Amino acid sequence: MAGEKKAFVLRIQPETLKELEGWAQEEFRSVNGQIEYLLNDALRKRKKRTKDVADNEPEPPADT
């Protein structure tokens, strides 16, 4: 279903969590919202890079 979210446990270093809490607060997000934002941004960039690499690959020679 669209919009349904799945919960899971995340193990994280205390120092990393503290940094995320500060960053989330600066951007008016919850820590969960900040993590989700960062993951979605990373996935979007990865998809773009993959597409760019595929677009820049040379075309295979045509059979004649």
Score class of each variant (00 low, 15 high):
residue 41 D to G: 10
residue 39 L to G: 05
residue 22 G to I: 11
residue 34 Q to G: 09
residue 30 S to Y: 01
residue 38 L to P: 07
residue 1 M to F: 07
residue 43 L to Q: 07
residue 13 Q to A: 15
residue 29 R to V: 02
residue 8 F to S: 05
residue 20 L to Q: 03
residue 47 K to R: 05
residue 52 D to P: 02
residue 38 L to H: 07
residue 63 D to F: 13
residue 10 L to C: 10
residue 51 K to S: 09
residue 46 R to A: 13
residue 43 L to G: 02
residue 62 A to Y: 15
residue 30 S to V: 00
residue 41 D to P: 07
residue 55 D to N: 11
residue 46 R to Y: 01
residue 58 P to F: 06
residue 52 D to Q: 12
residue 40 N to E: 15
residue 12 I to K: 08
residue 15 E to R: 00
residue 33 G to R: 01
residue 24 A to H: 00
residue 54 A to H: 04
residue 31 V to Y: 00
residue 45 K to H: 05
residue 50 T to I: 11
residue 1 M to C: 13
residue 45 K to Y: 07
residue 27 E to P: 00
residue 63 D to T: 10
residue 29 R to T: 05
residue 59 E to W: 05
residue 49 R to Q: 09
residue 58 P to C: 14
residue 4 E to D: 11
residue 62 A to L: 15
residue 8 F to V: 09
residue 28 F to W: 09
residue 21 E to Q: 06
residue 56 N to L: 07
residue 40 N to R: 15
residue 20 L to F: 03
residue 19 E to C: 14
residue 41 D to Q: 14
residue 40 N to K: 15
residue 63 D to V: 15
residue 10 L to R: 06
residue 39 L to N: 08
residue 25 Q to C: 04
residue 3 G to E: 12
residue 33 G to K: 04
residue 42 A to C: 05
residue 7 A to K: 14
residue 5 K to P: 03
residue 24 A to M: 03
residue 60 P to C: 07
residue 33 G to D: 03
residue 25 Q to P: 00
residue 3 G to C: 10
residue 60 P to A: 12
residue 54 A to I: 03
residue 6 K to W: 12
residue 57 E to Y: 01
residue 28 F to E: 08
residue 1 M to N: 15
residue 53 V to Q: 03
residue 56 N to A: 15
residue 14 P to T: 12
residue 12 I to A: 13
residue 41 D to K: 13
residue 47 K to F: 08
residue 22 G to H: 08
residue 57 E to P: 02
residue 2 A to M: 14
residue 22 G to L: 08
residue 38 L to E: 01
residue 35 I to F: 01
residue 48 K to N: 06
residue 21 E to N: 02
residue 10 L to D: 02
residue 21 E to Y: 03
residue 40 N to F: 08
residue 29 R to I: 05
residue 3 G to K: 10
residue 36 E to P: 03
residue 25 Q to S: 12
residue 28 F to V: 06
residue 35 I to V: 04
residue 8 F to Y: 01
residue 42 A to W: 07
residue 6 K to D: 10
residue 46 R to V: 08
residue 38 L to I: 13
residue 41 D to H: 11
residue 62 A to M: 12
residue 57 E to H: 00
residue 11 R to C: 05
residue 4 E to K: 13
